[in-house]
Design a protein around this nucleic acid. Structure first.
Lengths: 105, 105
DNA sequence: GCCGGGTATGTCACATCAGACATATACTCG
DNA sequence: CGAGTATATGTCTGATGTGACATACCCGGC
């Protein structure tokens, strides 16, 4: 999806000044992906630390095992909202979420 | 949406052990809302610090002024993804996002 | 008064995400 | 080997989020 968006933008032949915006955009996309990956790792770590199976977490999340698997796999069809919800449902406190967020290098 | 979900759960007459889960859920919901509000405030602050109008930010985000307004208003129809994207598009660095996240009490 | 830039609010068609299910894979223990 | 448990992957249908547009609401200067 990101790649296709970039392609269409390129194909559109943007005018002066838009190049910087474009670069900024992809930079932002990369940052967002980084955040997601960090949180995703925290979800799995938190879940395992509590000795929960994906099914257990799915129950707490009121979702399904397959969706939990997708969350942890960093599947593109998973939103940041759901990742954070999963992290909280896994038992992470607000503070833990913050730490997970900061645990990016 | 949250309220309706809670209602339907209540109406469903949950079994033993589910009560704690239910409480945990609403707690998580509250934490998520808190995170969103903190980030939303950061979006407006960052945008204004850079002297950008909502229209300017909308352009960078490749979205519309009305959506930016909704983001900053904490509208329920706005996802965490979009809030973070807006924050980044407003010029916030990854570090700034982390700080915004931590700036919750 | 009335413009003008900036912001807020409501609506809608379309895109994306969600939960659920089936199914596949992997690993352990008899 | 088969049975059990945990996780991964693909695909549906319905729910939710999105951009765009119209329009209303401010407020400052003219």
């Amino acid at each position: 999806m990101k790649a296709s968006k970039m392609k269409s933008l390129r194909a559109a032949g943007w005018k002066a000044g838009t190049a910087a915006e474009f670069l900024g955009l992809s930079e932002a996309e990369a940052a967002l992906v980084g955040l997601k990956l960090a949180l995703v790792a925290a979800v799995r770590a938190t879940r395992q630390k509590r000795g929960l199976s994906q099914i257990d977490l799915a129950r707490r999340l009121r979702s399904s095992q397959s969706r939990v698997a997708k969350i942890e796999a960093g599947d593109a069809s998973v939103s940041l909202d759901l990742i954070v919800r999963a992290l909280l449902a896994a038992g992470a406190s607000r503070k833990d979420v913050q730490k997970a967020f900061v645990a990016i290098e």
